[in-house]
Design a protein around this nucleic acid. Sequence first.
DNA 1: TGCTATTTGCAAATCAGTGTCAAGAAGGTC
DNA 2: GACCTTCTTGACACTGATTTGCAAATAGCA
Lengths: 152, 152
Amino acid sequence: MAKMAPDQIAERLDAFETRCRQLGLPLTTQRHAVLRAVLEHHDHPTADQVLETVRDRVPGISRTTVYRALDTLVALGFVRRLHHAGPSARFDGQTHRHHHLICDKCHKVIDLQDESLDRLHISEVHAEGFQIEDFSVHFMGICRACRRSEPS
Amino acid sequence: MAKMAPDQIAERLDAFETRCRQLGLPLTTQRHAVLRAVLEHHDHPTADQVLETVRDRVPGISRTTVYRALDTLVALGFVRRLHHAGPSARFDGQTHRHHHLICDKCHKVIDLQDESLDRLHISEVHAEGFQIEDFSVHFMGICRACRRSEPS
DNA sequence: TGCTATTTGCAAATCAGTGTCAAGAAGGTC
DNA sequence: GACCTTCTTGACACTGATTTGCAAATAGCA
């Protein structure tokens, strides 16, 4: 998963500032720092991982604020919220598409990049009033580790 | 989204009883009622929604038991667990291949039958030791109801 | 600088799910 | 049916993740 380039991060932060002014939304140090933290992560951080990263720049920031900032960023479309198998939500500053391998035994979720899967014909899907933004393919099966340990 | 027909529900419950006897797994009232509740739901209930439904038939059943019964049913393949559809896991009694529309706002899950999606070339997927049994395509977006109420 | 609406930080509450353990069925055996 | 063993249940406490209520602080603006 490629890390975002510094100039691309700066560009996104600028876009965010512009959008805030457009909406009359106060552009706080905290919100700015939270977006930056998410963009600088190359993986999909949980809210707590974001908090940890943000604290390098804004030491006193509270967990609550990070949660609220993430909510705002998701609502504005600058960050995507991902639900994986674990108990905590994950956040993603890149909007690249990815798929999942889900183990039926241990419930582990493995991310999968596959270009051939990305070319799905969404338009053909009969979606009755549902406005489709994106999709992801979930593969169910048994992971390598579980296959080894339990060759049932 | 089609509700499961009564005779189909009965058939699945029978299959479950048979499987329990095969495995020497005690067939308890609670487990039976939990499976029934999931099958009778036309949507994709959370564990707590299942609990609520089950209580109509088994008033004293505890939350813990419902969670455990769902675990068992998932392990036996009678129920499918859906992550990625919001903060809480959702359960699905349909076991044939189908796809999902997931609302980003209200986290509702709508079943989708689409033959064209079923013809995905699994073999092309680079699955590193993962043995793929089945797949399902998840479409994320905004459902009709949420679009009406919040035309942002 | 001063005003106002919004946001922040803290603490407490809530939510989803898990762990513990004594009491209670299920499924056999006589 | 009585009995026994094993697995399950229910009550409760507990964890980690997220939300809420409210007073104090701050951004945006005149």
